[in-house]
Amino acid sequence: MSAWLLIATGFALALLACRQASRGRLSSGHGVVWFAVGVLLFLAGVLLASGLLGDGDAGGGARAGDPAGPVRALIGVLTGACVLLFALGFAHAAALARIDERVKRLAQEVALLNAAQGVPPAMAADEERARDAPAAD
């Protein structure tokens, strides 16, 4: 089960990374990283399923009387936790990318507005500092 979970998650992550990047919801930098993570998970799943990383489907669960059962169950739980972490990480990266995009857009608009009003950047920064400074008694 672990192998198939990794394969499915890897495939979904790689696909989602492409989709979100193509819609501009993820930068190409983040996109390429999450695409690589997805591919790696997918390959790990394939290797696990093929038995190259050990005992075939390691997450088969604890079977009664099977001495390796608890180990398999532990591997299954750890795999699930990793998959959950990757999914949360992806969602977090996508949210950060959206915020980053908005901050940059805002910074560009501030710069264009300052230029249109003829405010030199140093003066704009001074005004900002003066506004932020505590009033003197």
Partner: peptide
């Protein structure tokens, strides 16, 4: 020369995008 100053470093692509917006407006 006309100058548009980003408040902090946004990257090369963002800089030329600001230039496009300036030109459009």
């Amino acid at each position: 020369v006309a100058v548009v100053s980003h408040p902090f470093n946004l990257g090369y692509g963002a800089a030329i995008q600001t230039g496009y917006r300036y030109a459009l407006r």
